[in-house]
Simulated assay, not measured.
Amino acid sequence: MNINLPNFNVKNLVKEAGSTISRVVQLTEEKLGTTERTEYDLHFQNLAERADVTKTWTEKLVRDTESVLIPNPQNRVEDFIFEKIEKSKPKRLSNLEHLALDMIEAGGDFGQDLPYGQALIKAGQAEQKLGQCEHDFIATSGICFTQPLRKFLDGEMKTIGKERGILESKRLDLDACKNRVKKARSMLGQQSAERDLRVAQAEFDRQSEITKLLLDGISTSQASHLRHLHAFIQTQVRYYKQCGDVMEQLQRELAKLSLWPNARRLTRTICTESRA
């Protein structure tokens, strides 16, 4: 019976294992302070620091925005899972909509022909409208703000993190080669070490340029984030205006009911007593 085994390149495996060990040794010696290390230039350090700050704050902004849009942590987790498996989110009633249903049902039981029953039904219908406004606000905010920021974190920032990791590996390889050159005792060994050093230096320089280009791109990303922020604020303005319109309309409808004048006098009396 023929068994097809994967074709392993033994030389590559040995080389990779050797590189890993060399990096571990180099990193350990650096932490112990027994060897020197190549420091990144100031411009690169500033870019890297800005990238770290951008990642940290973007993650926090996304979490904070989502906690405002969907206060229930369990619902946020559920929505996240459905997004990952690319399925539609479950249609759940908001607290406003639960209140609306109870108001309408209570109004029906109290009597649709009575002022209080009518008022409850009208208030419940208004709460339903507010609930729909809330659903629209959450959906639009996700599209215009949180989703683009999450895409940035899952795309650009992950790529930057990966390339920075590769660069650090190249830096460790470079410094390990520098140490081998210093420790070479024979002319042949020194020539071999210097050849490895030139290769390591070239790979480090190339990866450094790649990483710098990606880090520089964060400025462009932040310009996009600014547009997303404007869109989110506009969505909020529209949402609160819609809610205000609904409540003003409810006030006008309640004012027509015979109970409403008494309710207004009662409200003023309660507020006066509270201040006293």
Rank of each mutant, 00 (worst) to 15 (best):
G142S: 05
T20A: 06
Q236C: 09
L153F: 13
K212P: 00
T20P: 01
R198N: 14
P115A: 02
R37C: 07
H135P: 00
C243P: 00
L250G: 06
L250W: 02
K162I: 03
T20S: 12
A123E: 01
E168R: 11
E273S: 12
N179W: 03
N179V: 07
E253Y: 07
S19D: 15
G108W: 02
S208V: 00
M103W: 09
E83R: 14
N7L: 08
T211A: 15
Q190G: 14
N7E: 04
D196Y: 00
E209C: 04
I3H: 12
K89H: 10
F8H: 08
A184Y: 00
D216L: 05
G107E: 00
L197G: 06
V25S: 04
L69C: 09
N179R: 14
K84P: 01
Q242L: 08
W260S: 11
T272Y: 11
N46L: 10
T54H: 15
R195V: 02
V53D: 00
S192N: 07
A255R: 14
D173Q: 12
R23L: 01
V68Y: 13
D113L: 10
Y239I: 07
K241F: 06
A263N: 10
A48D: 11
L214Y: 04
I160K: 02
K15M: 08
V24A: 08
K241L: 03
M247R: 15
I85S: 02
N9I: 08
A202V: 05
H230A: 05
G165H: 05
R185T: 10
L130H: 14
W260Y: 15
M1E: 02
E66A: 03
I218R: 10
L13M: 15
N72I: 02
L214A: 11
K11N: 13
V77W: 11
G33S: 08
R76P: 02
S192L: 10
R265I: 12
M157D: 00
Q249A: 13
E78G: 01
T159C: 04
R198A: 12
A200Q: 07
R37D: 07
G217Q: 05
Q125N: 09
Q112F: 03
L42C: 03
V53K: 12
W260P: 02
E16L: 11
H98S: 03
G18I: 04
H135L: 03
D79H: 11
Q201A: 15
V24E: 11
G155H: 03
T159N: 09
T20N: 10
L69S: 06
R206C: 03
C144K: 07
D175I: 08
A100G: 00
T65R: 08
P73F: 13
L5E: 07
L229G: 01
L197K: 04
I210S: 02
R50S: 10
N9C: 13
L99G: 01
Y116R: 01
E127M: 11
Q74C: 09
S88F: 07
A139M: 12
A106C: 09
T56M: 09
T235A: 14
L61G: 06
G33V: 05
V62G: 03
V199K: 14
Q112P: 07
I3M: 03
R37N: 09
M247W: 12
T28Q: 09
L101Q: 15
R227V: 15
C243D: 04
K31P: 04
D216Y: 04
K122T: 06
K170R: 14
A231P: 01
R50A: 14
I210H: 05
E29S: 01
Y240T: 08
L229K: 03
K15L: 07
